[in-house]
Design a protein around this nucleic acid. Structure first.
Lengths: 108, 108
DNA sequence: TATATTTGCAACCGAATGGTTTCTTAATTA
DNA sequence: TAATTAAGAAACCATTCGGTTGCAAATATA
């Protein structure tokens, strides 16, 4: 069962979990309280997130605290950054067009 | 059939298609040549990408040129940027730790 | 006009997905 | 010690997914 980070963030519930534990570690029960699903379903999501190393576990007695591995999110950022230059370039081209139009106006 | 941009980029083949048409528009046939699947499979992927407005079609005779809608990619960038500040903050904290260690060393 | 090419669509198939219920294990707590 | 609580694992189920084959429509070409 290969886990991909892009597949992990594809599910809206998992993205919500990520947002939830981004600032403080939480137990599966505490996380599940925020959703209209069973704790077991959340547990499954957490397993997927753990498998692709997006979250880490910290055992504390019988409780397990899950926290976001922010560093792992960089992988998505790296991927999207390929295209960032593209839309910035497009923006610059638009900018140039506007500038040209402005100059043409001034020349009249 | 609701289409989500995060679900769209979850599939590796679709990410490859995105990379392929990022710089020049291409027809389904031309795109399919780069993969070990049938043209119909690629067509399905293109449909999904079109439905979530990640790609646009341009009809030219009987051919259809698909091109990436780079602007749409910003949505992912916006999402990831929430967490960018988090890992930058973490980096700064590490920076601070290193600085403190350096200072302690100097004080000895 | 007849044939070839490009494409999308529908039907089908096996595998994966997200969810549930039930059960077990381990740690608390009364 | 007995009961409770937190959590994961397994079995199951309906739905979706990614792929295939086969077909129809539209355009281009002989």
């Amino acid at each position: 069962m290969r886990r991909d980070i892009f597949q992990a963030i594809a599910d809206p519930t998992r993205r919500a979990i990520i947002a939830l534990i981004a600032f403080q570690a939480m137990t599966p029960n505490a996380i599940a309280e925020n959703f209209h699903t069973t704790r077991q379903a959340i547990s499954k999501h957490l397993r997927i997130l753990t498998e692709c190393e997006l979250v880490t576990q910290e055992y504390q007695g019988r409780e397990i605290y899950y926290s976001l591995q922010v560093e792992k999110m960089k992988e998505i950022d790296t991927w999207i950054s390929q295209y960032r230059t593209l839309w910035q370039k497009r923006f610059n081209q638009l900018d140039k067009v506007l500038l040209t139009m402005k100059n043409q106006k001034n020349e009249k």
